[in-house]
Design a protein around this nucleic acid. Sequence first.
DNA 1: GCAACGATTTGACTTATGTCATGAGCGGTG
DNA 2: CACCGCTCATGACATAAGTCAAATCGTTGC
Lengths: 326, 326
Amino acid sequence: MPIRNTDQIMHKAAWLYYSHGLRQDEVAQKLGISRASVATYLRRARETGIVNISTSTELFTDDVLARELEDATGVTTAWIVPEDRQAMDPTAEMPVLAASVFLELINKGDRVGVAWGRTVYHIADVMPFADLRGVTVVQLCGNLGAPYSYRPDQCTTEIARRLNAEGINFYAPLVLSSERLAEELRGEPVIREQLSTIADCHLALYSVGGIEDDSHLVKCGALSADEMHRMGEEGAVGVIAGQLIDGDGQWVNCAHNRRCISADLGSIRAIEKRMLVVQEDSKFEPLMAALKGGFASHLVVTTSMARRVMERWQRDGLSKVHAATV
Amino acid sequence: MPIRNTDQIMHKAAWLYYSHGLRQDEVAQKLGISRASVATYLRRARETGIVNISTSTELFTDDVLARELEDATGVTTAWIVPEDRQAMDPTAEMPVLAASVFLELINKGDRVGVAWGRTVYHIADVMPFADLRGVTVVQLCGNLGAPYSYRPDQCTTEIARRLNAEGINFYAPLVLSSERLAEELRGEPVIREQLSTIADCHLALYSVGGIEDDSHLVKCGALSADEMHRMGEEGAVGVIAGQLIDGDGQWVNCAHNRRCISADLGSIRAIEKRMLVVQEDSKFEPLMAALKGGFASHLVVTTSMARRVMERWQRDGLSKVHAATV
DNA sequence: GCAACGATTTGACTTATGTCATGAGCGGTG
DNA sequence: CACCGCTCATGACATAAGTCAAATCGTTGC
């Protein structure tokens, strides 16, 4: 892309204002434009990530409950969104927090994986703009349309766009109608190659899905409610990157999973920073499964969810999950 | 340190204002305090690094001259401060730019080395505040007082303070009166251990010094002007972390260097990101030596200096310096 | 128990910033 | 070359943010 002159001016304005601390009228004078234009340039600079304003998320890790969760479950860092006090609506708060945490966890040059679901969609939607050229955002699961939210490729693209990162999509359906076709497609060089790069990610972002009738997979038509029930009988309790996991967080050898094109769960577990975000209280059992399966090194949950996890973890006398042991 | 209640409120205010985009009066209402207090908290949040505002330094790398310098010399990235246009005083601009670049190059968890000199002092002085717990700032050279600027340990400490990082100092003088004493002191476990950790740094920040009568080392009394002349006759052309280097950027086996306690030049060259900042035009020869010696992977200079380097580099038919080859 | 101090809060004021309707510039097009 | 459609620039106004002296609060020392 050619370097537009306005971009140059925008950069200069941002530099003088934010890095040198000049006032807008001083910047205007120095650049020979009106102050109103400076204000416009500055907004654009913020919107394009040339200027980056970030807030430490320490507020949410600075909590005894977070320490306890980390100590008990082996999660590296936990962020806890309070529900009690006057604060904010936790449903609105969590995506903002998750987006900030996500940005905190990215390093220059990283490859990051993004999965899909209502939660991820909301996070993408409030993701701040940043200047992270050199970062690559890859799609963790195959595509599936959803009437009320982004498709997986759109999530990836949107996040990449906001970060000024490169987005790598993955043009295969999430679920196919036959196991044979899924198998063949997985074997296709283009697909196989992309799936194999997932283990090289430094960071992954996902939520865990439930298996109720109103779960995301059912709502999007990947499975009928009946089929989902049957999967539940076969041991499925949650969904990670479109795939069903059992109570221990292991891949379920069921019809749906065999028909599914998505990141191998082993590849996901191999990722250094596995960021799991859970909003809904109804996702308690899936969350437990994901934790046992080692799918979270960085966890964002509500206070009540954190308490329930602690309780259950202790009741069942579970020990820490180490990435190495899973 | 105990978590003060005001810190908690400051965090919340910063979070609501910067991450949620509420206005100050909305934040005030939500926290049950006055808007004036919110403004105060927000300033403190910026000053303590809880809120981080950074500007991309792309403006300064986005220049054909920078590309040419990188291609010719093998420097990974060059930032070039323009002198011509109306812009800013380059002497004031460069420390601000260098500080921004420095922050851009740091990653979470890094160990970074900081040397000493007028330039480094000025950079420390304009370093923005950031929340970089987990980062360690180490002192690259022994201590020496200076009437008009910080001591090495003060530079390290100041930068660490602003970054909320850990500062590791190094309590030995830069120069001793006898070679024997320097040798013995270098052998002391405390000192030796600290010097040995320098090669583990991910990033180092320094300038290059000259050997004129008004050079930093002479002004600070480490050497007399006469002694410096003699060192020049022995081949010294510049100073890196208090030590004299010759025209090829190699350690000079001279009285001063043997009496000096500082990071081993080999350790410095082993650091992945070697950030070299040169302000004064008079430092051309020292800069050439430092470049040949492989002391810069990331370079911040003025336009005129960049031009001179390009000219000389081509005239002498020099080739790229690779970190691996030095 | 009270004086004295520092830290924090606030209301009232000043200053800076955001916004928007309007107009200017500019390249393409019939 | 006149028209359109676009982006960008600007002045004037509305709004938000910064500042400061004075008041309040909480702690410490005597």
